Amino acid sequence: MKTKAWLFLILANIFWAGNLVFGKSVTADFPPVWAAFLRWAIAASVLLPMAQLVEKPSWIQIWRRNWGLLLFMSLIGIAIYTLLTYTALKYTSSTNGSLINSLTPAVVSVLSFLFLKEKVKFRQGAGLILSLIGVLTVLTKGRLLAIFDTSYNMGDAILLAAVFLWAVYSIVSKRAQHLPPIAFVAMTAVLGVLFMTPLLFMQPLHREQVTPLGIMGIIYLGLFPSIGSFLFWNRGVKELGAGKASITMNLMPIFTAGLSILFGQPLLLSQVIGGTIVIAGMLLSANPMSRKQAVSNAGAHHGGELTLKPVSHIESKCT
Rank of each mutant, 00 (worst) to 15 (best):
M1Q: 02
T3L: 01
A5I: 00
I10W: 04
N13R: 03
I14N: 04
I14P: 01
W16G: 04
N19K: 08
S25M: 15
V26Y: 05
T27W: 07
P31G: 07
P32F: 07
F37A: 03
A44I: 02
S45C: 04
A51G: 06
A51T: 03
E55T: 00
S58A: 09
W59S: 03
I60N: 08
R65S: 15
W67F: 14
G68V: 07
L71T: 05
F72Y: 12
F72C: 12
S74R: 06
L75N: 03
A79S: 10
A79M: 05
A79F: 03
I80R: 09
L83C: 05
L83T: 11
K90R: 15
S93Y: 00
N96E: 09
V107A: 05
V107K: 08
V108R: 10
V108H: 10
V108I: 15
V110R: 12
L116G: 05
K117A: 15
F122R: 13
R123A: 15
I129M: 13
L130D: 12
S131T: 14
L136Y: 12
L139F: 08
K141E: 14
R143Q: 14
L144A: 11
L145T: 13
I147F: 14
I147Q: 08
D149K: 11
Y152D: 03
M154W: 11
M154C: 02
I158T: 09
L160C: 13
A162T: 09
I171A: 12
V172W: 10
A176F: 07
P181S: 00
I182A: 00
A183E: 04
V185P: 04
V185D: 00
T188H: 00
L191V: 14
L191E: 09
P198L: 00
L199I: 02
M202D: 05
G214P: 13
I215C: 11
I218W: 05
G222D: 03
F224I: 01
F224P: 06
S226C: 01
I227E: 05
L231A: 02
R235G: 04
G236I: 06
L240I: 04
L240C: 01
A242P: 02
A242N: 07
A242C: 08
G243L: 03
A245T: 07
I247Y: 02
P253R: 10
L259Q: 02
S260M: 03
L262Q: 04
F263C: 10
G264L: 12
Q265N: 04
P266F: 06
P266R: 01
P266C: 01
L267V: 04
L268G: 07
L269H: 09
S270E: 09
I273N: 14
G275Y: 11
I277G: 11
I279W: 15
A280K: 10
L284E: 11
L284F: 14
L284T: 13
N287E: 14
R291C: 01
K292H: 11
S296Q: 12
N297T: 12
G303V: 10
K317F: 11
C318S: 14
